[in-house]
Design a protein around this nucleic acid. Sequence first.
DNA 1: TCGGTCGCCGAAAAGGTTTTCAGAAACGTA
DNA 2: TACGTTTCTGAAAACCTTTTCGGCGACCGA
Lengths: 339, 339
Amino acid sequence: MGAAANRAVTLRDVARLAGVSVATASKALNGQPQVRAETRARVVKAAEQLSFSPNTLAQGLITQRSGTVGLLTSDLEGRFSIPILMGAEDAFGSDQTSVFLCDARGDAIREKHHLRALLSRRVDGLIVVGARPDTRPSLGRDLPVPVIYAYAPSDDPADLSLVTDNVGGGRLAVDHLLRCGRRRIAHITGDPGYGAAQDRARGALDRLAEEGLSLAGGEVWFGMWSEAWGRGATRMLLDRCPDVDAIFAGSDEIARGVLDVLHEERIDVPRQVAVIGFDNWQVLAANARPPLTTVDLNLEQLGRTAAQRLSAAMDGTLSSGVETLPVRLLTRESTAPLR
Amino acid sequence: MGAAANRAVTLRDVARLAGVSVATASKALNGQPQVRAETRARVVKAAEQLSFSPNTLAQGLITQRSGTVGLLTSDLEGRFSIPILMGAEDAFGSDQTSVFLCDARGDAIREKHHLRALLSRRVDGLIVVGARPDTRPSLGRDLPVPVIYAYAPSDDPADLSLVTDNVGGGRLAVDHLLRCGRRRIAHITGDPGYGAAQDRARGALDRLAEEGLSLAGGEVWFGMWSEAWGRGATRMLLDRCPDVDAIFAGSDEIARGVLDVLHEERIDVPRQVAVIGFDNWQVLAANARPPLTTVDLNLEQLGRTAAQRLSAAMDGTLSSGVETLPVRLLTRESTAPLR
DNA sequence: TCGGTCGCCGAAAAGGTTTTCAGAAACGTA
DNA sequence: TACGTTTCTGAAAACCTTTTCGGCGACCGA
């Protein structure tokens, strides 16, 4: 008798073996009170003996709860979805709730398609993860199940969205650099069309303003989310503003480009110039030379919170609006106090 | 009437609206022949009007097919699982089959746990994705559903495993370098405890032997799967063997380290030294300077094949053994003909 | 007009579980 | 002994769909 030879072993089989009716067997297994201890023991033993596991489909049919949720993503690489999924799995408890992962690949009609499929599977709730941290179209108000938007907020304020605190992250980064004694701080970041780029920049500027400082290089260097832009921008920056003593990069990819050029120019990091990234994309940040201080998005926490909010919503307590979750600083070696 | 206001709209509602019995409604919707065209039209219209979508749980209960499969992974980053998932989704057709993604996080008891949950959800099949391309313990022979092992093969030859062709990949890489006119080829790779490292090296050596060549630097440089090792090994290599004209890196991470040091030493890539990676990990390979020629694992194809084999197995045609799927060369700018 | 065919429809069972409610058994009390 | 309580058990309905099979009406040929 191996791991799970439960081909078609049903509650009836258990009941028969225990010498009771299915009704009693059900109650015994589910801890209902109206069954004698001795009977319950007999049933439990029979169930184990047959390695019975209840048919969740049938359970779902009757209880009107499938014990599943859908995770609808558009994030090809799984870079955001996976940590969020893990967090959610964690919070739900994997024996209670399983999750369907569907990737719409940025395609609206594929999304509709998946949505239909998920609904016909009677998921108890939905988590929608966007590909980029900008407003995305709502799935609509008349869905039969609650929906939580994670990472990318919904454009409908009646929905509940969970986002990372990009403004706070920008503040955090600059604050850290200030604490390291840096004063001539530049900011190189990605596509200005991204809300995240704007928010992170704003946080940085705010914090600088509090110290009466402004950005080295005069303004934010917007460009693209790529190493190549990080390199190009750094070259221009060094040209225009050779006395810069810290660079806040809007993403770890950009930071890698920044480090690359600094290294090429034989500029010591963090001695001469401190560098900080954003996202904590492990493979990039931890492998950088030197390992990159960065702002961690806390995505697992985001996933856990999403799961909690969804559970609450399934129990009727649904909220709305945009909830901003804190990010956190992860210090490695690319930043250090001056001297 | 919005996207899907299908709270509890059942086939009975449709039937009532169309003025037929549920039996007829079912047949009409499922394209059964014994229903008049006019009647069918009426039913279809009613279904649309109510935006009816059949309860997959109930369907599964009766047809004994849930239309779901489980994807059991141990790959924290989703780096392998996600492309495989996408391929599988593709091949199944997302309206037919949805997939449960479960991450065991390398923990055997968590895996058992997920397995139980998936079986009680009556998945029609299982795809097991390992974290590294080495043999992993079988789930056992007495499971009620077919299982396909992807990426990491099962240790039981009675199971069907799908793996990438690492030996072939090694050959491919070296072959490409030879075609570029390189003769003094070195191989820097990761942990020798990984089958993948051994296989890739073997492929490379085989191909070299065919030309009567041996490895520059004398032997394979085994170490770790990290940029840091790539850098360290390259420094030693240049020291020992300054006339090397090509480096085959066992992974893109290692290749990044290699490129880094070559760049630092002002050695032109690909003019003086060609570099080739392995894995086609997009963010690393495409952003490298210069963009990295690499061996693509074809993971989506692996996923598609897994889905096909699983479908076949669900229809009773199950096979066993290890099936090796081809990888392919992806040429970017880090390799080029000499001259 | 009548018997036979054929095309279309509906009643009912099945699938595995939970839950309600009625009934049986055991016990105490008068 | 008769009756009321309490405690436990089981029959049956419900969840929603699919499928089998019997039946009804219409049409055809005689």
